[in-house]
Design a protein around this nucleic acid. Structure first.
Lengths: 192, 192
DNA sequence: GTCTATAGTAGGATAGAC
DNA sequence: GTCTATCCTACTATAGAC
């Protein structure tokens, strides 16, 4: 692994663990086993390295998400597969947690990475829900955009509650609520 | 206003704007118009001042929330009043955003303030929902705890999405989704 | 490309005068 | 109670050798 790769990986780990403001170049260098020179040779500084690391994490999250959403099962099954993806509630979402960081939002390059991720995720969830509506799986009148937004928010909020309580079960409760809502949208479920 | 009050207020503002890690004692002192001596006379340091400021913010949030939830209207109306409380989506939740901060979670005194707030909020929402079920307002089988968790998560997640997109409308979409879900729980709504 | 040395600024807390 | 002066460490970046 090149020093550049080691730096990107180490930065990603620390951003997830400690956020952007809470991560210093020195921490990254130590974890990557690199010196100052390597970092400032490959990147203009902390911000550019963070953008690279965040882009890499975003790609990984998209891959994992797409695996769940692209199956050939029903729309409900695919949404539930997304909701059931393995996550670390106490660690938080790699994208969602960073966007709470003042310096991330203040730097448009940093923030744009998270915005692009959530734009993509919302569109994918909405597309799957729309397929379900077209196929008659969900009752007519189901709003794919609104439900996609609700699902994303529930996952992100679940992380917040889990961290507050330091209890992964708080995340599960929120996600279970979302699953109940999706189930209630199914045509002939007795709820619509 | 005493220096102690000024410090507590300034700390609260900065914690909301910049988070815990991103706020320095020097910033607080400048905004409060106080010197180092005042801060270290009244508080043991940054952490203790932050606990005091967070407790004050938590109290204010509880008061505002209770106003919405304690009305004599229907359960649906009170839940909607909570969801429609005036908020600043781009700023984030005073409690929810802080809990994403590494140092906040690492310090049990800091984290406990947020945990207590969400415990209280979950119990209040669940109680209102349970009243609605008992009154026959919501269809039988409605799970007050699960719905309370879903509602809290939606609001918290709405903040995350709004900050990512730098667009308050993202918050509104998530909350509107929650309102649709609550409306769907109403007995005789054609969905249950 | 990668290293160490160096530098200037800011973070967080203490000391002691008033 | 409040102030300023001081201290030590960490943060972020640059310089220059190899």
């Amino acid at each position: 692994m090149s020093k550049k790769e080691a730096l990107t990986r180490a930065a990603g780990e620390l951003l997830w663990e400690r956020g952007y403001t809470g991560t210093s170049p020195a921490m990254i260098l130590e974890r990557a086993g690199a010196g100052q020179g390597s970092m400032y040779h490959h990147f203009s500084g902390k911000a550019e390295l963070a953008v690279t690391a965040m882009a890499q994490m975003s790609d990984q999250l998209r891959s994992r998400t797409e695996e769940a959403l692209a199956g050939d099962g029903s729309a409900v099954a695919r949404i539930n597969a997304f909701l059931d993806l393995e996550r670390d509630p106490l660690a938080g979402c790699r994208m969602g947690r960073l966007v709470q960081d003042f310096e991330v939002v203040a730097d448009d390059d940093l923030r744009a990475t998270t915005a692009d991720f959530f734009t993509w995720l919302g569109e994918r969830l909405s597309a799957v829900l729309a397929e379900g509506v077209r196929a008659g799986e969900f009752r007519p009148g189901t709003d794919p955009d609104a439900m996609a937004s609700l699902i994303m928010a529930t996952v992100q909020g679940g992380y917040v509650l889990a961290r507050a309580h330091q209890d992964p079960a708080a995340f599960r409760r929120a996600v279970d609520g979302a699953k109940q809502v999706v189930a209630g949208l199914v045509a002939g479920s007795g709820k619509g």
